[in-house]
Design a protein around this nucleic acid. Structure first.
Lengths: 332, 332
DNA sequence: CTGTTAGCGCGTTCAG
DNA sequence: CTGAACGCGCTAACAG
């Protein structure tokens, strides 16, 4: 293991000088700097991030906290994008990052959680999939001992930022587009399959849909599908018959609805939300809101780094696309 | 941040005593032990793994190295299972673990890679998706500086173990079952869509299929589908017509084949390999080899821990199931 | 501008 | 059985 000491010796300077060069401190002569850099290259030296984290007062380790709520594996794609996007960005920014699954900490108290992160020298946390019921996490955020970035939830304070798309607007637009595309048919009786009661994104999407219903003077029936394909199937079976269009708060529900309609042998336009590739396998093409989860995650990590550098928490709204997803878009 | 020092003070003992209790050293009086344990609990102390890794000579950090080869996101499920299974087991075993994506290190030289892992205090590496062309990784393994566990490849030496299922047998059995189920029909002309040329699992599966062809006296046409759904589609289009059954070396190819058959409006039994839930969306139910990726990954981490404790490398073969996957098995 | 020194939190001798 | 002392690799004052 080649350490900073070896580099110092090789370059004929002091350890601290090497450290300063590596961390881009000012006040180092160019000559010394190049000398050190060369030694680094020759020895193939990579700073030991563990030691750096230990030594420095502001360690910059980040945890990706993944809360997998739904049993289905169909949406693993989203989590993979989150994880890979976040880790890649962290690597670019030279930040240490670890992945933590919610299940590993779910029965910990707030103090235990606190101690756990401290013990890992973690100071920044990016949280995916927080819901209103996750009390411990909310306490963690409110204590403000860590820098937190929350995905898909409107939580921000001095030490907490939120990153998400405008779910309200996205739901409005994807549903509007779908309705307009079917302008020839009757389409004013809408079945809306919403997400989870009290869910952050669910509520935003619901209000978006409500606004659309008001704007277009639609007759809307709202039923809670809880992001479940099975629930969506049952609700479709029960209510779709005398509706003209089915708007779903997630792709998975849209797929369930679509399959059920086929089984019922009736046609209704369906639209989804998220843009997962599974949509391509739904059988028919559907409109949906395409989110770039990898980018969302990367932005979240960047934001966490900004917070760690003393930035103030804020609300970040990223863009989205309305797309028509079909099998050919997926396969390769 | 509560440190070992605080615990020592609180318990009225020396720092080293606390350390010994925590690391289950012998020669500590029960009384002292309980005293320390109580202090730990009262102060909510969690050892700082960063410092521990730095201090101890044998750090036990493990890297999960994920090599995502295929562009399709349909198999993210597999990677998620690998990641969550591995991380969970590592947490149980109290091992530090980090996730590393191949893309982050792909243009590093062997020395850089070496230095990278060293710098992270990583000594154990679990590799998913290694192929014969990954030269740097093979060098890494051959150097034997790290303890490595390879998933799905027959590589083992003193410091390297391999973990996988018996792909030969699995391919044999799933194809045999599918053929026997269609015993009424002619089924001796087989189209086999294999994986990647020179791939470890691909070869094992191919030989399994070849043995079956010999045993059952089948007329077999082998074509390389490269685990690609699109390739499988094209090959099916081209060759399925005068075959009786299509055996695929992966679920994704099986799905492609199945969809194409539907478009061609002909029926042929198809079977796959892996057991991803996407199979449930294929339209018809299919036989496949169900692998428990989370368990495979967990076993790999356990094996890495064993190697780190001085165990010798070995070849571990886990079990699998032959299942008939249908939509109802997936949805919930 | 560069070198010296003191820790970060922990594991590990080695005396007591 | 316990505790003082050292060092892991690094950063951050402080001296020079």
């Amino acid at each position: 293991m080649v350490s900073i000491k070896d580099v110092a010796k090789h370059a004929g300077v002091a350890i601290s000088t090497v450290s300063k060069v590596l961390n881009n401190y000012p006040n180092i002569r160019l000559e010394t700097r190049t000398k050190v850099n060369q030694a680094v290259k020759e020895l193939n030296y990579v700073p030991n991030s563990v030691a750096a984290a230990l030594s420095s007062k502001q360690p910059c380790r980040i945890a990706l906290l993944i809360n997998i709520k739904y049993k289905t594996q169909a949406i693993d794609e989203i989590y993979m994008q989150y994880i890979s996007g976040g880790i890649s960005r962290a690597t670019e920014l030279n930040l240490d990052i670890i992945t933590v699954f919610f299940s590993m900490i779910e029965n910990k108290s707030i103090d235990e959680l606190d101690a756990y992160f401290m013990s890992q020298s973690i100071t920044g946390i990016v949280i995916y999939g927080i819901s209103k019921e996750d009390n411990t996490l909310h306490q963690l955020i409110n204590r403000e001992r860590f820098k937190v970035v929350v995905i898909d939830a409107p939580i921000f304070n001095t030490n907490t930022s939120s990153v998400w798309i405008d779910n309200h607007k996205a739901q409005y637009e994807v549903a509007k587009k779908t309705i307009l595309e079917n302008i020839g048919h009757a389409s004013d009786r809408v079945l809306y399959l919403s997400g989870k009661k009290n869910g952050y994104v669910s509520e935003a999407r619901l209000t978006g849909m409500e606004k659309l219903a008001a704007d277009l003077n639609l007759e809307m029936l709202v039923r809670c599908g809880e992001f479940s394909e099975l629930k969506a199937r049952n609700l479709t079976m029960r209510f779709a018959k005398n509706k003209d269009i089915i708007v779903c708060a997630s792709d998975l529900m849209a797929i369930g609805a679509m399959r059920t309609l086929t089984e019922m042998n009736i046609f209704r336009p369906v639209c989804g939300f998220d843009g997962i590739s599974l949509m391509g396998y739904a059988g028919k093409q559907m409109n949906t809101v395409k989110q770039d989860f990898a980018r969302i995650s990367a932005e979240a990590v960047t934001e966490a780094a900004r917070l760690l550098n003393g930035g103030e928490g804020r609300n970040i709204v990223l863009d989205f696309q309305i797309v028509r997803l079909k099998y050919e878009d997926i396969i390769c």
